[in-house]
Design a protein around this nucleic acid. Structure first.
Lengths: 220, 220
DNA sequence: GGTGAGCTGGGACAAATGTCCCGTTTTTTC
DNA sequence: GAAAAAACGGGACATTTGTCCCAGCTCACC
């Protein structure tokens, strides 16, 4: 299976924006902006003037359904591109992007971005790669979150989370998994009782081998 | 919300392949092939030599998880592209593609396809559009299938299904929704008892307005 | 130092979904 | 056209997940 990435990053695109464009090219078409935690880079249902490339910070891409519940499509970290789908398709935003920490991002006017992707082979290639990668991730995640019980997905998430130092809110993790916070807590409790998760943190109590064996047990 | 498309089609790409390429260009790099119902165009975990553009027939793109359960990512109809993600990313197939009816598809060698997308602006544009569209669809579907009870998703599916004449197997519809066939039947029965679905078909018993109102009721 | 908003953890119960199973119906195959 | 294979429909029961709720804790703010 391709590696699950909880926080999408894309250093190549960030490098491209920062190093491949001259000041003249940037002018007033490419500039930096900062949002406080809780701020919105994009809003579902709106059109937007810019495509963003996140420079620092952490944000979440989420969809709010009519019943008020949120589903988190992905978390974005350094270098990830956002808002480009809407430019390609010329549609309104499908998702909202909310800053979880302070976020600084390059803003590229949609016109200039549209120009770049048709005239710059390198950015075009990076864009194709990014889209392909996210499509794979999204499909793979939709699949196992539908097909396995929540506990499996939680375990998988925890193993990834261990490599992040960031503090996520319980609600965000639950929204990412598509379950209620109550269910998330319940599964966590059970995993603790089975001595799989550390009593007072999200850390896996067990080593990699035991984890791999556990995951295999679901596949029987 | 952007329109839910149950069966993805892409006439523009099919037209491109059939009309924009000369016989000389096609040579032995682009040719037609036919699979019987049940045949595999791609197999999960394998590499492949061709990118395909479906000309006729219906197929399903699915992921088989380690526990043996299937999740259907999408159904493909006329013109849809498959296998291109793996070429862009240079990875093995994430999904299996299985013909549901007899399928005829253009086969394009991966080398030639890789050449085309970097040298033909029109195909490059069509590819970006296709990826963006599928990413949107996949995210939107993952979201509401996680966030709403199965009955809502089933109702939504039936309203789309009504416009198709194709006969889908119950198992495939259930796999698409990420529920068991038993649950699918149970919900169907309840919808029939509430006179929302026709007693002996998948047809919605109710008119568009009542359907819209029902969908809104879930959002309260 | 108080106070209120918001996050946390979990009990009790309800609802949704899955598993197992078996009899029936439809489709395929020879 | 009979036999075998596959799909269908649903009963009974187990498991998972959600809803509602409340008590404790933390932390910003006055």
């Amino acid at each position: 299976m391709s590696q699950l990435t909880m926080i999408h990053t894309n250093r190549a695109i960030l490098t491209f924006i920062e190093n491949q464009l001259t000041e003249t090219e940037k002018k007033d078409r490419v500039f930096l902006q900062t949002w406080p935690a809780g701020g919105h880079l994009l809003k579902q249902g709106q059109g937007n003037k810019y495509v963003f490339v996140q420079q620092t910070g952490l944000s979440k891409v989420h969809i709010t359904e009519d019943n008020g519940k949120d589903f988190i499509v992905q978390f974005l970290g350094e270098g990830e591109l956002l808002g480009e789908i809407e430019v390609i398709q010329k549609t309104l935003n499908l998702t909202t992007v909310t800053a979880l920490t302070e976020v600084t991002a390059w803003c590229i006017t949609t016109d200039y971005f549209a120009y770049l992707i048709t005239h710059n082979a390198e950015l075009n290639r990076l864009l194709l790669l990014s889209l392909a990668h996210r499509l794979n991730q999204t499909s793979a995640r939709a699949s196992y979150q539908q097909v396995y019980p929540a506990e499996y997905a939680i375990l998988k998430l925890l193993s990834v989370l261990a490599t992040q130092q960031t503090n996520f809110a319980k609600k965000d993790l639950a929204d990412y998994l598509g379950v209620s916070v109550r269910s998330f807590n319940r599964s966590l409790k059970q995993l603790r009782e089975r001595s799989i998760v550390h009593p007072d943190s999200f850390d896996l109590y067990i080593d990699r081998d035991v984890f791999e064996r556990l995951m295999r047990e679901y596949g029987e």
